[in-house]
Amino acid sequence: MRHTISVLVENKFGVLARIAGLFSARGYNIASLAVSETMDPTISYMTMVVEVKDEDVLEQIKKQLNKLIDVITVTDFTKREHIDRELVLAKINYAAKDKAKLEGIFDKFVGKIIHHKEGTAIIEAVGDTQQIKLLLDELSKFGIIKELVRTGKLAISN
């Protein structure tokens, strides 16, 4: 099961290493991790998606995170209303003849071309997990994706 949690931490050097170390030492899996400064520059915000086999492990992860001195709060979005998004950049093979087909996809799904040159285009897509998945499935059908980078999920409660 995947769960999204966010962690507010002191914005100090070594904090990321503490969190990464905790996960590796205890054998927890991080599926994705996004980190950045908040409005308050002394605080960083992390959104992480963790892969766990049951709720007990999730509980342990939250408790262990809370135990780190530099962790201010841990929020579990599993049972909490929230909005989440992920940004994806994809480099694809792009020929003029594909234009209509791609526009058809973008009409139905998230995503747009933000750059292109010499048979290559870069697509940007922002969406929730499902939207991104649908888009990538669709693009994959054409076998045109050359490179893909994604931010991992960001989440905020609503």
Binding site: D56, E59, Q60, K63, Q64, N66, K67
Partner: peptide, 8 residues
């Protein structure tokens, strides 16, 4: 005193 010791 350590919540992470409970139900571990």
């Amino acid at each position: 005193i350590d919540p992470s010791s409970i139900s571990k």
